[in-house]
Write a protein that binds this DNA or RNA. Structure first.
Lengths: 261, 261
DNA sequence: GGTCTGCGGAATGTAAACAATAAACACGGT
DNA sequence: ACCGTGTTTATTGTTTACATTCCGCAGACC
């Protein structure tokens, strides 16, 4: 079946990997969320694992068949992902996995620095003992990960640490925005992220930040949090500097398009 | 036709006001956006004008008939509004216009203060002459509005002023988040807003902020911008203090539900 | 009298069918 | 040989139809 359209889903043939992923997500949602939501998670998973690479188009019919659902939920999921910032949809052309430009990465880091800094400042002024204990536990776990060199464990600990700080800060909108943008970066630039390691430095920064929060020093906490985010940005830059090609364009707008496969 | 479900759209009978609104939006979009997008704008308009009040349920079939489209685009619009934060959808129960609690309003103001402050700081360091001219023009227009006492003109000038600052700051994600949250507040708490006037004070704050930006004083601009937002919050609080009942609950979750109309 | 169970109906969730759009191919003119 | 135009076809946008879920009420049972 030759196809005239530029690029297809990519992981089309053979792999029914999406279907089982959807099943898993749907079970995890336990019927408390709609099917479209499950498809959304499945698509996120496919983006995360690279089954859907930046620039790829989300063929509704194909994905629907692959996931064993109708086009409706797929459409719904695609629009949801658009709001999340993971895909771009063009009228009558479909949804494309975004490839986020370096400038946008920088701007997002900048935004996250401000948000994270403010969260830390807020938290320093309202921390309760239970939260303090949780933060300490998370930090301790990361110390272990650093000692044993477990990158994956450190990575999830790092995510949890940041998540706890913004959640504990008490400002829900801020928390949502921060986590959303962080997730976006994670999903669209994943490979660069785990290469950006340097756990030790990050861990030290965490401890300094945590100390300021525990001490109730709001402004100091803000500075440490901002600095930590900016340091993370620097590590990211260093990682991609020699690691891989810097950038691709944002959206298949004019003629140029991704090679697909 | 008696209806068992708690509340209906409210503006159901007679008024085909939604249909013409949709037609207008669809023409404005000029076929460059999907129908669902037009419905989304129409629904926003209905929320803004109060045709859909907080707590009201969005009956898909009813709205579809009213707007002269099918349920599909209505669903799509409802989900879009959910991500915008204007409605809450509950599985198998439908979409409800959110009634945003006072605590969330406060948190959103807090977030906006930080974002607006940072935007001002960024802008102070990168302002170009053309942008400076535009900001001056906007400020001048608001001066006129204050002088003549035109509340509506001042209101739109105010919106434009804030919008220009965040757009000129160069950080797109920040801009999007700020404008989105501001819009949310505007649509869900509109009546309180235009009562919160006190144009003169706000105008003075604008001038102080603009002066700092034009002078390139980043940190001072940040302080002024944050202070301005917090002052706006204070004005808002003062306005609702004696104006109207403070709050209702966020979402029709358990048994309690809005009276409808 | 109160509580629980079963029925009825309306509205949402999902799937399938129809219509419209845009890209790729093929042809003909210049 | 190149460019423009007409045609074809896949794919999305939209409508319609079907399945499922949940709420409210009535009657029976305790």
């Amino acid at each position: 079946m030759q196809q005239r359209r530029p690029s297809s889903t990519g992981a089309a043939e053979g792999t029914a990997t999406g279907a089982e992923a959807l099943a898993a997500f749907r079970q995890r949602l336990a019927g408390r969320e709609s099917l479209g939501r499950g498809v959304e998670l499945a698509l996120e998973h496919m983006i995360e694992t690279g089954a859907l690479q930046p620039g790829a188009r989300l063929n509704e019919a194909e994905l629907a068949a692959q996931l064993g659902v109708s086009r409706g939920p797929v459409r719904e999921a695609a629009r949801a992902l658009e709001r999340t910032g993971l895909v771009t949809v063009i009228l009558n052309r479909g949804a494309f996995v975004r490839s986020i430009g370096l400038d946008e990465v920088m701007q997002t880091y900048e935004l996250n620095a401000v948000l994270f800094g403010h969260a830390a400042a807020l938290l320093a002024a309202r921390l309760d003992p239970a939260q303090a204990a949780q933060l300490r536990a998370t930090a301790a776990g990361m110390d272990d990960s650093v000692a044993t060199g477990e990158r994956e464990a450190f990575f999830s600990g790092n995510t949890l640490f940041h998540q706890q700080i913004v959640e504990f800060c008490g400002n829900r909108p801020l928390c949502d925005v921060y986590l959303g943008h962080t997730r976006k970066l994670l999903l669209l630039r994943r490979r660069s992220f785990d290469a950006a390691g340097n756990m030790r430095a990050a861990n030290d920064e965490h401890h300094r930040l945590l100390a300021a929060i525990l001490a109730g020093e709001a402004e100091q906490a803000r500075r440490h949090a901002e600095a930590h985010t900016r340091a993370g940005r620097a590590r990211y830059l260093a990682a991609i500097a020699h690691g891989e090609a810097a950038e691709d364009n944002k959206t298949p707008k004019g003629k140029k398009r991704h090679v697909g496969n």
